[in-house]
């Protein structure tokens, strides 16, 4: 019953996250070693032998920040789609429940109404918590995207319009300048908060999968209960909807506490 779109969006978003992690991995170490991201980008040898090489490396650094900005933007976009699809999928499951045959004895109908109400309440809570996670990760990723592209553009502008004097002393001085700022900007924009955003996303993802499976299980159980008309045996859970959703609600509480502490 869980829409395929849910799993598709999850896979796409995971891939984008992996790409961003791969792109940013070891950036500071590489920068420290040799103001260059060439090992990250193309695996080239990083030895500097001429002014021309200096210019090339300066351009590569700008390209790196440009690419990283784009990758952060893609993860922001794909994770947003994932969160939205998750909320929609939970709603779609609710609608499925509404389709259970209504030609049931009155006492069962009353129980069903209570059960639906509980499920709807759960969906609202779940959506709100997903929104919290979405807002946090979006803010972090969009900020990184913005800072990185601005920094890449500033570097490009300097290289193209300012005309750096083509001598080793100037190149070296400018590289030192960029090394200092690249490290600072990287740490400021993509260190602590990005790791929290990864954690928040991972936690939201794990819980969304669990919750979808749980909702799916409940729908199947409800359909079975009506299919076999053995209310006394198979529909026992309807007698106490609150109890039936207790575990799921406590899962939401755990998730919310986790997000509150983390963010």
């Amino acid at each position: 019953y869980v829409p395929m779109k849910f799993y598709d969006s999850l896979r796409t978003s995971d891939r984008s996250k992996q790409e961003l992690q791969n792109k940013l991995r070891n950036f500071l170490e590489n920068l420290q070693k040799n103001l260059t991201t060439s090992t990250l980008l193309s695996g080239l040898d990083t030895s500097i032998s001429s002014t021309q090489n200096h210019f090339l490396k300066l351009q590569e650094l700008s390209t790196f920040f440009h690419d990283a900005s784009e990758t952060a933007g893609l993860f922001a976009r794909d994770s947003e789609i994932f969160y939205e699809v998750t909320k929609n999928s939970s709603y779609a499951l609710l609608l499925k429940l509404r389709q259970v045959p209504m030609a049931q004895p009155t006492e069962i109908k009353i129980l069903l109404t209570n059960y639906f109400a509980e499920m709807e309440f759960f969906h609202i809570m779940f959506s709100e918590i997903m929104d919290e996670a979405l807002e946090y990760t979006q803010n972090v990723l969009r900020a990184i995207q913005k800072v990185f592209i601005y920094y890449a553009d500033a570097q490009r502008y300097i290289l193209q319009d300012w005309n750096l004097k083509p001598n080793m002393v100037c190149c070296k001085m400018y590289m030192d300048f960029l090394q200092l700022y690249s490290a600072q900007i990287f740490k400021c924009a993509a260190d602590h908060e990005l790791n929290i955003a990864y954690d928040v996303y991972a936690m939201a993802e794990t819980n969304a999968k669990y919750i979808m499976r749980q909702l799916e299980f409940r729908i199947q159980r409800l359909f079975n209960c009506f299919l076999f008309k053995s209310y006394q045996i198979r529909c026992q859970f309807l007698l106490n909807a609150e109890h039936d959703f207790e575990k799921l609600f406590s899962k939401l509480e755990e998730l919310e506490t986790y997000f509150d502490i983390k963010t």
Binding site: V147, A154, W162, K165, V169, C170, I185, C188
Partner: peptide
């Protein structure tokens, strides 16, 4: 806040500024 508004002008030292034909 990561990138100062007057970057790179305000952050460059004089000797580095002299390395450019603005």
């Amino acid at each position: 806040d990561c990138l100062p508004k007057d970057f790179p002008h305000g952050q460059m030292q004089k000797d580095l500024k002299s390395c450019f034909y603005f």
